[in-house]
């Protein structure tokens, strides 16, 4: 059960972190996004919540919530850092044309932040193992520690493999064009 909860929390937290970072990083005023510091607020809130979650949540909810918050923070921060590398002129273009959010994410945001997004997701996998293990220790379920750590390592490996596969498919598409 804790393996399923860890994977679910990792996916939800990571996807939520990336989407919120991209939403907050949209061009709002004259083609410019909100300042970096302001966009980091969603990262800070879960960090503050983490201690509360580890201390007070009952049962395996502790594992789920701590992995969710950790993945959210790390991926949101990584995505925000990557979004800083976007070409400001492309953002102005997106603003002037009122490009749909999905197209902006696909063509401008993701190419700019892919590397740091993948790196932060890989780190999230390892952190999921550690923080999940800490939660299990607090729950006095030390017999589940090994499987928790293996799950984190598998998540990291899965992110790496998915990145390689996506890069190859993009390369093939480009070659075909």
């Amino acid at each position: 059960m804790h393996i399923f909860l860890t994977i679910l929390a990792f996916v939800l937290g990571g996807a939520g972190g990336a989407l919120i970072a991209m939403h907050l990083g949209r061009p709002v005023t004259a083609g410019k996004p909100a300042p970096y510091g302001k966009r980091m607020i969603p990262v800070l809130i879960p960090v503050l919540l983490l201690g509360f979650v580890l201390r007070f949540l009952p049962g395996l909810g502790k594992v789920f919530a701590s992995v969710l918050l950790a993945a959210f923070c790390l991926v949101c921060e990584g995505t925000n850092r990557g979004l800083e590398k976007r070409d400001g002129k492309l953002l102005e273009m997106a603003f002037v044309f009122r490009i749909p959010a999905s197209a902006r994410m696909q063509y401008i945001d993701l190419p700019a932040c892919r590397a740091s997004l993948v790196r932060s997701a890989q780190i999230s996998g390892i952190v999921s193992a550690l923080i999940g293990a800490a939660a299990l220790v607090l729950l006095d379920q030390k017999n589940l520690l090994i499987s928790q750590i293996v799950t984190g390592v598998i998540l990291t490996a899965a992110v790496t493999i998915a990145d390689i596969v996506l890069a190859k498919s993009r390369g093939k598409k480009g070659a075909a064009a």
Binding site: K89, L90, E92, M93, V96, F97, Y107, I108, P111, G174
Partner: peptide, 12 residues
């Protein structure tokens, strides 16, 4: 509909 001074096309 705008043509900018630079191309502003998405590379790749």
């Amino acid at each position: 509909g705008t043509v900018f001074q630079e191309d502003r096309l998405c590379p790749g």
